[in-house]
Design a protein around this nucleic acid. Structure first.
Lengths: 339, 339
DNA sequence: TTGTAGGCGTTATCAA
DNA sequence: TTGATAACGCCTACAA
């Protein structure tokens, strides 16, 4: 039907149905019961014929609430981010919110731009997983009473809830497993840590535990796009004389991918040399003899982020102290840590 | 700074700066040159102090344009979809649009809901990759002059541009490669085709080519979540006596994943039994001896979708006939098709 | 049960 | 160069 060149407005429906705007508004605002059956029919008919849909912009403007949640994702091509986003979206939907996702490609400039954008659309809450330090902008938002949740990465100076993996526990589980499997000399590989608190925490805990447990080991931070450098670093570690079997610990899924490539290039046999990655990926079971991982409960993390937002949205008057919600990783033991 | 409880409005800025709303509006609408330097300074100062940002909802309402492009994605966890989405987002950004993405999880009900949502926000264009047949809804949109692009999957009854892979060419390339590598008996594995035209096309072309080329082969359609059924189907194919080496052709990335799992479960040696997948994935090079793929130019597809939208947006008066924009796949020959 | 009027934050028109 | 005013589409007192 609907062949009007422009989207119909409430006024046109009202005219067409021979009723007032108010009645049409009521019809579409869940107050149908207050309208006579006859009027309901007429409105339904006109609205259907005209293809009328309430304009959410106008609604949002009037009501002062956009029903929009914003999400800033540092790297949309990272399966972990997508999985969390999926959880976030489901939760938003379940609570009548829509999600507006912005991918920043780890670019601080895009972060700022997209933040401005989401602000402009008056998102009622923000799930943030960023690289840079848009601390100032976020503080401003928080000050305007826009609830904020930090995902995976904390921003020291921003007062907001944070949800993510229990990194200490993850590292502990990883090291316990590797030691139990007989590996005694470890290399922890991470992307540069400046911009991501979770990376810092994982590396920090790794170093602590080494000292405490008397394990041999070292950590290295590398940009993943430089494959030769990564291969050199790994080769250096593996060539070193030692008394115990060696293993690699990958601080996240991207690292696991890059390291696995490097190990194949170096013709290393998995298992003989241990490999354990944080983040579960589709293919980890497929690369022989299977890559051991620590899986994050991504959907739960996404839901928790939204829950946190909604709680603050529900009680804006008393700003509860900011919390950390940490999740326990799950170990998927596979052949890459079996000697 | 900005510690007002609520977001500042243009009126508050105007008052604070001692000027009129109009001037503030001009300042933020790229008409700064028309304001005296003094006034510019005052407005900048007040706006900064108050943390003012133009309300995009109000702007959209007033201007009748939301600056929003909507995208409906059938399965956000499919890396192919994400890659295309990335291209779409970049292109939108480059042209001053923002992207609102909705994931439908292949659920027609969610498709309908999300479509309504995007409509409610008055998206100015729509990139659609769906499972079901929201043909009616989409037609209505098209009739309202909202430009539409179909991604990967055509909808027979909807008049809109379509962008995707040249499926015929993809199948041809795949079969040529497999035959050149000495495989003579083929199994093409696909997900059920009812809901996705691209699947139908790939399967259709596969059958055509078999007949034309005198190759042996068959096709099977399966829901991927039933691993045992898939294994049975593959085992049945492989057990059959034959004169020529056998190969599997996976109709998309999800299939490649499931089939690779099945082949490992069946302890099949890749290469000896050929394997070629449509869609390139992170891990295809990692699974020994490397899985041969046909890569889609995902970013280009995304950009083309937006281009198509923008063209129609730019010239709404003369509705050009709907086009198909098809892309050529790229062959990544690896060990899985080397005997 | 139904309608009238005013305003949400912005921009466009017109006048000064 | 500046400002007053009227919309944009909708919702919500308030009135009938």
């Amino acid at each position: 039907m609907a062949d009007s060149p422009r989207r119909a407005t409430i006024l046109e429906v009202a005219r067409d149905a021979g009723v007032s705007k108010t009645s049409v508004s009521r019809y579409f605002s869940g107050e149908r019961d207050r309208l006579s059956p006859d009027m309901q029919r007429r409105i339904a008919s006109s609205a259907g014929r005209l293809g009328y849909r309430p304009n959410q912009m106008a609604r949002g403007l009037k009501a002062g609430r956009s029903r929009l949640i914003g999400m800033l994702v540092a790297d949309i091509r990272n399966p972990f981010s997508v999985a969390v986003m999926h959880g976030v979206e489901q939760a938003c939907r379940a609570h009548g919110f829509s999600l507006m996702v912005c991918n920043t490609d780890n670019d601080p400039a895009q972060e700022r731009d997209h933040l401005a954008l989401l602000t402009a659309y008056r998102v009622e809450g923000l799930v943030v997983n960023v690289t840079g330090r848009p601390g100032h902008e976020l503080e401003a938002l928080a000050a305007q009473d826009t609830p904020l949740v930090l995902l995976d990465r904390a921003l020291g100076d921003v007062e907001a809830d944070m949800v993510g993996l229990d990194n200490d526990q993850a590292i502990d589980t990883a090291l316990d497993h590797l030691r139990a499997q007989g590996y005694g000399e470890l290399l922890c590989v991470s992307e540069p840590t400046e911009q991501a608190s979770s990376r810092q925490q994982r590396l920090g805990r790794f170093r602590e535990r080494l000292d405490a447990d008397g394990l041999q080991g070292e950590a290295c931070c590398l940009a993943l796009d430089d494959a030769p450098a990564l291969e050199r670093a790994i080769a250096g570690f593996l060539d070193r004389p030692s008394h115990a079997p060696k293993a690699l610990l990958c601080a996240n899924g991207n690292v696991t991918l890059a390291v696995t490539r490097a190990l194949q290039a170096l013709d290393v046999t998995l298992g003989e040399t241990g490999l354990l990655g944080i983040d579960e990926l589709d293919w980890c079971a497929l690369v022989a003899p299977g890559i051991t991982t620590l899986a994050q409960p991504t959907e739960a993390i996404g839901r928790a982020a939204v829950d946190s937002l909604l709680q603050r949205l529900a009680a804006p008057e008393r700003p509860a102290p900011s919390r950390q919600i940490l999740f326990t990783p799950e170990l998927n033991a596979r052949g890459s840590t079996r000697r």
